[in-house]
Amino acid sequence: MSLLDLFLGALLLLTGFLAVRLKNAVHAALALAANFILVGVVYMLLEARFLGWIQIIVYAGAIMVLFVFVIMLLYAAQAEVGADPLPGLKPLAAAVGVVGFLALTYAFAGAKAPLAAKAASAALAGGTAEALGPLIWQTWLYAVLLVAALLLVATVAAVTILRPGEGGGR
């Protein structure tokens, strides 16, 4: 663990915290975008370079831009203040948070790296597209197709639900 890793970890925690705590939705979204970019940087430092670029393009680029588009379109930047719409939720959320933290700590304490860091870097072969391609399109093709089908179903469902006219939607 180098100084750079620690610095990136601290920045990740900070941006994550800001994404949750900032009152203005646009500021929070930006903090989240910074968080995604930092995750991409961490991937690249771990020799998973293709994954790092994809993380930045897909998450910080495409997904956050859509997020921000919706926030701007709906003028939803300012959080609603006043009566809490779901009163009982805060203690429950705190409890779930504590349980999650304990579970993660337990898992972290008991975890053993499947490969030593050096061997892992070698196995990733620099994490280039050439190294990753056969894994996605040969070894794990079935899983990739399953995910693709799932996403297609979700898209069709979203379009169907929001179709204007007959029943629901606008």
């Binding site: 930006l30 370079r49 293709f50 670029w53 393009i57 910080a60 680029g61 701007m72 280039t128 597209a129």
Partner: peptide, 23 residues
Amino acid sequence: DMGVLYVFAVSELAIYGVFLAGW
């Protein structure tokens, strides 16, 4: 080695300037 992806990432992030200015 992934120059094309770099170009994509940068040109997508460039939109943040425009959107932030607008907002």
